[in-house]
Amino acid sequence: VTTYKLVINGKTLKGETTTKAVDAETSEKAFKQYANDNGVDGVWTYDDATKTFTVTEMV
């Protein structure tokens, strides 16, 4: 189990959250659901070296 981080650069929501998951794909699903639940829709990137997802909304 690995800890993954999500950085949110939204128009109205900014911040970070973490989750523990067995792999990046599992954490990505959880993070995308979290973003969707909070009305964040944007461009996703992933940095495997830091286990960090970033979602950026276009303004």
Rank of each mutant, 00 (worst) to 15 (best):
V22H: 11
K51D: 02
A30P: 00
V55C: 05
V59L: 13
T26N: 07
T18C: 14
Y4S: 04
T18D: 06
T56H: 06
A49M: 10
G15F: 15
G15V: 14
A30D: 06
A49E: 12
S27Q: 04
A30W: 15
D37S: 09
G42A: 01
Y4L: 02
G15H: 13
D41Y: 14
W44S: 00
T19Q: 09
G10T: 15
G10V: 12
S27N: 01
N38H: 14
L13I: 13
N38D: 02
T2K: 11
T52K: 03
N36C: 14
D41A: 11
K14M: 08
T26D: 07
W44P: 00
T45P: 00
Y46V: 00
Y34H: 04
Y4I: 05
D48Y: 07
T56F: 07
E28P: 00
W44E: 00
Y46A: 00
A49G: 08
K5R: 13
T52F: 01
A24L: 11
A49N: 10
F31L: 05
V7G: 00
V40S: 02
Y46K: 00
G39M: 06
K20D: 14
D37A: 12
T3F: 07
F53K: 00
Y34S: 01
Y34N: 01
Y34A: 02
T19V: 15
T52A: 03
M58E: 13
A24P: 10
G10I: 11
E28F: 15
T3I: 13
D41S: 12
V59D: 14
S27K: 01
N9D: 09
G10W: 06
D37K: 10
A21D: 04
D48S: 10
A30C: 13
A49H: 09
L13D: 05
T45V: 08
Q33V: 08
A35S: 04
G15S: 13
A24Q: 13
G39T: 03
E25H: 10
E57F: 06
T3L: 13
T45E: 10
G10C: 14
N9T: 06
K20A: 11
T17W: 15
K51P: 01
V22K: 13
D41N: 12
K11I: 15
N36Q: 14
A30N: 08
T50P: 00
L6Y: 02
V1G: 11
V59T: 13
A24K: 15
K20F: 13
K29R: 12
K32F: 05
T18Y: 15
A35W: 02
E57A: 06
T52C: 03
L6G: 02
E16S: 12
A35F: 03
A24H: 11
N36L: 15
M58V: 13
E16Q: 10
N38E: 07
L13E: 06
T2F: 14
A49K: 11
G10P: 02
D23Y: 03
E28H: 11
E25V: 11
G42N: 00
N38M: 15
Y4E: 04
T12H: 14
V7R: 06
M58G: 10
T3R: 07
N36G: 09
A21F: 06
G42F: 03
V43K: 08
Y4Q: 04
K11G: 08
D23H: 04
A30Y: 15
A35P: 01
T12D: 09
G42E: 01
L6E: 03
E25S: 11
A35G: 02
K5F: 14
T18L: 10
E28K: 12
K20V: 13
E28N: 04
E16C: 15
K20R: 13
A49T: 12
G15C: 15
F53C: 00
V59A: 13
E57I: 09
V1I: 12
S27E: 01
Y46Q: 00
D41W: 12
T12S: 11
T50L: 07
A35V: 08
G10N: 05
I8H: 02
T18H: 10
V40E: 01
K5N: 06
F53L: 02
K29H: 08
A49V: 11
V43A: 08
V7T: 04
T18K: 06
K32D: 01
D48I: 07
T18P: 02
T19E: 05
V7W: 04
K14L: 08
T52L: 03
T19H: 13
Y46T: 00
N36W: 14
Y34W: 15
N38T: 06
W44R: 00
F53G: 00
T26Q: 12
N36K: 15
D41R: 12
T2M: 10
T26V: 07
E25R: 12
T18W: 15
V40W: 08
K11E: 08
D47F: 03
G42W: 06
K29A: 11
G42Y: 03
A21W: 04
E57V: 09
V59F: 12
E57K: 03
V22G: 09
T54A: 03
T56D: 09
K32Y: 05
T17Y: 15
A21V: 03
V22S: 11
G42R: 00
T50H: 05
E16L: 11
T50M: 05
T54G: 02
V22D: 06
T56M: 06
